[in-house]
Every structure is written in C-alpha cells, then in structure tokens.
Simulated scan of single mutants.
Amino acid sequence: MFLRPELPKLALTALAVVSLTAATEMDPINPTCPLNPNWSANPTMKLTVEKRGTMKVMLAEGRVDSGLPDRLSAALKANPDVSEIWLRSPGGDARAGNAAGRIIRSNPGLATRIPSGWACFSACNFVFMGGAPRLIEPGGEFIVHMFTSTGDRSLIDESVAMGTDATTELIGDVEQDSALLASEDNDFLIKMGVSRKLLTDIMYRQKAVKGSGPDKSTRRCLTLDEALKYGVTYAVE
C-alpha cells in the first residue's frame, strides 16, 4: 500500500483527459501494447520549455542518452519555475535514466507526466519515476521490458567470430554488469517510493529478446490499475 503525497494544485486544463477518437491498433506480438507507440524519434532527448495553460512545463522527447543528466540539470537551473516534465521516449541508456530521475527528485515538488497518447519505455521509466507526483493520463503508455546490459549485436557477433573464449568472457561481463544494474534499479525504486515488486512481478518476467516459441513478447504496457498498485503513479482526485 502506498500513501499518495499531496498533489500540487495543477491547472485544470492539464488534468483534462483527452478522449481517443479512434481505436488503438494493438501489437500482435506484444498484445498489451499499441502497435505503434508514440515515442519520439529524436536520437537524443530534446528538452523544450513551454507554457501550457497557467503552467510552465518541460517537454522531454527522444532517446535517453548519456548526456541527458547534464542537460536536464542545466535546463532545470535555467527554468526553476517549471512545474512538470512531460515524457515521450523509446528509452536508451539505463544508468542515464536513473541519474536523470534522481535529478528530478532533487527538485522538490517537480512532477512528471505521461500525457494521453504518449509512450515512455525502458530507461524513460526511471526518468519518470523521479517525479513527485507522477501522473499517467488515461491513454498514456508506461511500457516496461527486461533490460539487457548490451544491446550491441555487432559486439556479440564479433565475440562469437573470435571463438569460445571471447564469447565466454563477454557473457561473464554482461552477467556482472546486469547484476550491478539490477541492484541499482532496486535501490532506485526504494528511494522513489515504488514497489520493488514492479521489478520481480513485471519487468524481470519479460523476455530480453524475442524467443522462438509461441510467446514472442518482449514488452509489457502497465494498466493504470497496475501503475497504482506498484506506486508508479498516484490517483488524481
């Protein structure tokens, strides 16, 4: 059970739910998720400050890259009156996502939001969880998966070409780094007030890569009820 902190007074326009006028086509491989999630194709996360109603918000759109924490810190210092960060991202650098989440948490009262129709995947999850409060609008997608320590297929192929010893060494390095990252993620969730069961019940139960069996899913979109259950978001009264 998670206690909801007091929500700041937000503009009514920002709390309005946008109705989806057309049915969302679902992904047959990842049936809990839309076929074409609306995450930004920006190769690095772009931070744009805009007025939305009476609020000043920061739109964070694009890939979570290694330079994001420094850019985010500088942008927040230059715009101390930003009240929310709105996220649309396909994920990226896991540790940069954790660092960005901690920067957001170091700014008391700074909220994060996934607007209706936007998607926040993978490393974006950890940026989002830095907010207090955290808001997922109906129609917003919080998409999780099992993280992989190396997504560089060329590195894997190269090690295989070099022979068994090189592949064994790579596997050992990946296992070690994955264990460290899992520990870091666990610590992060505790500090952000999110249930660690989000990892054990949901994230770690997803496949890291598409398998050869009937279940080829690698992504899971949380329902709003699940997001509330695990403390990912708060109920809005």
Results as ranks from 00 to 15, higher is better:
Thr48Arg: 11
Thr48Ile: 13
Thr48Gln: 13
Val49Gln: 00
Glu50Gly: 04
Glu50Asp: 14
Lys51Tyr: 10
Arg52Pro: 00
Arg52Cys: 02
Arg52Val: 12
Gly53Thr: 09
Met55His: 08
Met55Pro: 01
Met55Thr: 05
Lys56Gln: 12
Val57Pro: 00
Val57Asn: 04
Met58Cys: 04
Met58His: 03
Leu59Met: 14
Leu59Ser: 06
Ala60Asp: 05
Glu61Ser: 10
Glu61Asp: 12
Gly62Pro: 02
Arg63Ser: 01
Val64Asn: 01
Val64Tyr: 01
Asp65Tyr: 08
Asp65Pro: 04
Asp65Gly: 01
Gly67Cys: 03
Gly67Ser: 13
Leu68Ile: 08
Leu68Asn: 03
Leu68His: 04
Arg71Gln: 11
Arg71Pro: 02
Arg71Met: 03
Ser73Gln: 15
Ser73Phe: 15
Ser73Gly: 14
Ala74Lys: 15
Leu76Glu: 06
Lys77Phe: 03
Lys77Asn: 02
Lys77Cys: 00
Asn79Gly: 08
Asn79Lys: 06
Pro80Cys: 03
Pro80Ser: 05
Pro80Ala: 02
Asp81Tyr: 11
Glu84Met: 15
Glu84Leu: 15
Ile85Val: 15
Ile85Gly: 05
Leu87Pro: 00
Leu87Trp: 06
Arg88Asp: 05
Ser89Asp: 07
Ser89Pro: 07
Pro90Ala: 06
Pro90Glu: 10
Pro90Phe: 12
Pro90Leu: 08
Asp93Arg: 05
Ala94Gln: 08
Arg95Ala: 11
Ala96Asn: 04
Asn98Cys: 08
Asn98Val: 12
Ala100Thr: 08
Gly101Met: 08
Arg102His: 15
Arg102Cys: 08
Ile104Asn: 02
Ile104Tyr: 07
Arg105Asn: 11
Ser106Gln: 09
Asn107Trp: 12
Leu110Trp: 06
Leu110Tyr: 09
Ala111Met: 12
Thr112Asp: 09
Thr112Pro: 05
Arg113Leu: 15
Arg113Glu: 14
Arg113Cys: 15
Arg113Gln: 13
Ile114Gly: 09
Ile114Gln: 10
Ser116Asp: 10
Ser116Lys: 10
Trp118Arg: 14
Trp118Asp: 14
Trp118Ala: 10
Trp118Gln: 14
Trp118Met: 12
Ala119Arg: 01
Cys120Gly: 10
Cys120Asp: 13
Phe121Pro: 00
Ser122Asn: 00
Asn125Tyr: 09
Phe126Glu: 01
Phe126Tyr: 13
Phe126Ile: 02
Val127Asn: 03
Met129Tyr: 09
Gly130Phe: 09
Gly130Lys: 08
Gly131Met: 07
Ala132Lys: 15
Arg134Cys: 05
Leu135Pro: 01
Leu135Val: 15
Ile136Asp: 02
Pro138Ser: 11
Gly139Met: 05
Gly140Lys: 04
Glu141Tyr: 13
Glu141Met: 09
Phe142Gln: 03
Phe142His: 13
Ile143Gly: 00
Val144Leu: 01
Met146Glu: 11
Met146Val: 07
Met146Gln: 12
